[in-house]
Nucleic acid binder design. Structure first.
Lengths: 214, 214
DNA sequence: CTATGTGAACAGCTTCACAGCG
DNA sequence: CGCTGTGAAGCTGTTCACATAG
C-alpha cells in the first residue's frame, strides 16, 4: 500500500520529470519502458527510478518493464495532474506578465483563474495569454479563492510587500505558494512555500563556474 | 584555510541568502550579528550558519558574533558578487523579455550584455529594461562571449530546440547555463547547469497541498 | 556568561546487490 | 536470461554538544 509511506521530497520532483518523459514516449507510440531507459533519458539511475515508483506501489512487470500508458496514468493520479488545478497570480509586473503568457502551465493541468494587482494603472487591464484575464484588485482574492476553490497561488510582487501579501493569500485560503520574491516568507498556518529566486540561481552558477576554473 | 574544502552545494545557495540578509542588516546600520539572529531571519539553524561559514574560514568572534560589514565583504568575495559578471540571454520570448526587464540581476552584480534570438521578427528589436539591448541572431553568440568574456548564460528558448542551442552555447565558451526549458540537457564539456522548471515547482506544490489536506 | 568553531552523532537520500517473478 | 522490487550498505548534509575564546 501507499498510504502513510515516507516519500522523499526529491522523489516528488522527479515524478514530474518522469511524467514529462513518459508523455513523450507515449506520443512516440512506445508501449513499454524499462527503469534503465526512463532513467537514462533524464540522467537518473535505474535503481532510483524503481525506488521512486516503489514509494507509491508496484507498477512494473519483471522481465518486461513498465507499460507506458498505464504508468503515465498512475503518475498523473499521484501528482493530481489528471484534474485541473486552479491557480491565482498576485503581482502583474514583468515577471507576472510572463507567467500569464506562459503556456507550460496549461499543458500540465494548471489553469490561471485570476490576476491580481494593486497598482491602479494595472487594474482593469486585459492581459494577453492563453486565456485573457482582466487584472483585479488584490482585495478580491478571498472571493476568487472561494469561488474557484483555489489552493495554490503564484506570488510575483516586489520584495518589500511580499510578506504581507503572502499572509493575505494564506488568510484567504491558499495552501501553497510559489514565491518569486527574494525574501523568506514566515507564515501562520498550514502552507507549503516553494521559492524561486533567480539571482540565487545565478550566483550559484557563477560560483561553480569560477570554482571549477580556478 | 579554504582551498580544497568539500563544500555542500546547498551551503552555496544559503550563502546567497545570508548575503541578502546581511545587506539588509548593513542598510539598517547594524554592526554585528550572531549566527542565531542571522539564521532565524532566514529559517536556518544557528549551527547551520556557523558550519556554512566554517567551510570558508573563520569570520566571527566568540562572545560577540560576526561584524556585519566585514562578513558582507567576505561573502561577496566568496560568491564573486564583488565583481561584475557578464551574462547573455538566448531566447527572447515572454520569459526572456521578463528576464531582460528584471532588475534583480543588476542588483546582484550581473550584467546582461546581449539578447539573442533566431526569430527574424525579433532580431533588431530594441528591448526595454535597465539597459536597452538590440536583439541579435544566435549565430553571434561566439563573438559576444569572446568580446565580453561571458561565462554564464540564460537559456529561455522553446523546449524542442533547447538541447541544440545549449550545446552551441557551450561550444562558444559558456561554462554555466541557467536553463528554463523543461528538458534535461546532455552536454559535452565542463559545464554547470541549473534548471528552473516552473511546471515542476507547481506540481510539487500541488502534491504537497493535497497530500497535507487528504 | 555569550557566542564561535568543530568533531561526533544522526538523518535522509541514493546506490548496491540480489531474491524473485515472467 | 531480463527486469522489477527491496532490504542493506553507503554517502552526504544537518544537528548536536562541547571545548574554547572573548
Amino acid at each position: 500500500m501507499a498510504a502513510a509511506e515516507q516519500v522523499p521530497i526529491p522523489a516528488i520532483r522527479r515524478l514530474s520529470l518522469y511524467l514529462r518523459q513518459l508523455e513523450a514516449f507515449q506520443g512516440a507510440g512506445r508501449q513499454t519502458v524499462s527503469s534503465r531507459d526512463l532513467g537514462h533519458s533524464l540522467g537518473v539511475s535505474d535503481a532510483q527510478v524503481r525506488k521512486d515508483f516503489g514509494y507509491f506501489g508496484q507498477f512494473g512487470r519483471p522481465g518486461v518493464g513498465y507499460r507506458v500508458p498505464e504508468l503515465t496514468e498512475r503518475v498523473r493520479g499521484i501528482l493530481g495532474t489528471d484534474k485541473k488545478t486552479s491557480v491565482v497570480l498576485v503581482g502583474v509586473g514583468n515577471l507576472g506578465r510572463a507567467l500569464i503568457a506562459y503556456r507550460g502551465f496549461a499543458k500540465r493541468g494548471f489553469e490561471l483563474v485570476a490576476a491580481l494587482d494593486d497598482d491602479p494603472g494595472k487594474i482593469g487591464v486585459r492581459t494577453p495569454g492563453p486565456k485573457p484575464l482582466v487584472v483585479r484588485p488584490v482585495a478580491d482574492i478571498a472571493s476568487v479563492v472561494r469561488s474557484h476553490a483555489v489552493r495554490v497561488g503564484l506570488l510575483a510582487v516586489p520584495a518589500p510587500v511580499a510578506q504581507q501579501v503572502a499572509q493575505l493569500m494564506v488568510d484567504s485560503g491558499i495552501r501553497g505558494i510559489l514565491n518569486f520574491a527574494p525574501v523568506m516568507l514566515r507564515l501562520n498556518g498550514d502552507v507549503s512555500v516553494s521559492s524561486v529566486d533567480l539571482a540565487v540561481h545565478l550566483e550559484q552558477l557563477a560560483f561553480q563556474v569560477s570554482a571549477c576554473g580556478a
